[in-house]
Write a protein that binds this DNA or RNA. Structure first.
Lengths: 136, 136
DNA sequence: TGTTTTTTGCAAATGTGTCGCAATTTTTGC
DNA sequence: GCAAAAATTGCGACACATTTGCAAAAAACA
């Protein structure tokens, strides 16, 4: 089951048709891994800006993509079904974004934390800020 | 050492003068704890919008304030020197934001994670999303 | 106090996200 | 496969958010 199949199934199961703009948005994110909205718009060269926005909205509702807060903007990435769960470290000097591997112990700890406050956790984001190897 | 002193020292150490607009921004955040940019602007009634933006930028660089991502917007709060470190859980149904107590084990885990990638951690944000007690 | 540097307010420019609507594309029922 | 119905798109136009240039005001300095 490759990414394209997962993608097509997600759409089919929600009675949403696979159109050129939607494929373009998916392709851009699959290829570039992580994009700002502006980057995504220009990566989908012949898709209208409004359609990119509408597409990201529907994709997010379906879990096909995620919005990753970085600093105070956000970036877009394919959802968890398309790659392992991970977090990001952003270098405050050069702006590089480093993907961090999943840490099961960490995830458990978060579940605990939420549970203690009677909060039902559906998702979470962790954002580290600091200096990358080359900038420090 | 109260908040005002910490604030004044942070400015002094960076050769930045304490002006009316800057004090207004600081006061608003100290009083309201957590504000959106729009709220902050209207809370600083006779400070120009552009100055609020410029002030939040410089304050953020000095660590006087932090941007807290909530969903995909953000809110502004005083930095870590001004209150205990904590994180937020946002209810996806009613939008409530619940402050979570610090968890030292969690913080250690993050340090580890960053260290393993030769990343020098200066700060971090954790954002939980799910359902609060009343909404679930 | 007079001079230099920093900061501010204002106005204009740019960026980001949303909306209505007519045209196009896709789906559906035959 | 074809016509009607439904979904989706592109194209403005809009509202709001953020940044910028610049002259005036305030603060720092000597």
């Amino acid at each position: 089951m490759n990414s394209q199949n997962i993608f097509e199934n997600a759409l089919k199961q929600n009675h949403i048709s696979l159109t050129k703009p939607r494929q373009a948005v998916f392709d851009a994110l699959q290829h570039h891994k992580s994009l700002s909205m502006a980057e995504l718009v220009s990566a989908c060269s012949d898709v209208d800006r409004a359609s990119v926005y509408r597409t990201t909205d529907t994709f997010e509702k379906l879990g096909i993509i995620m919005r990753i807060p970085t600093g105070w903007k956000y970036r877009l990435e394919l959802g968890e079904a398309f790659h392992e769960h991970h977090h990001h470290a952003t270098c405050s000097s050069c702006g590089a974004s480093i993907a961090l591997p999943e840490d099961p112990a960490l995830e458990r700890r978060l579940q605990d934390l939420a549970h203690r406050r009677n909060f039902t956790l559906t998702s979470h984001q962790i954002e580290l800020t600091g200096l990358c190897e080359t900038c420090q």
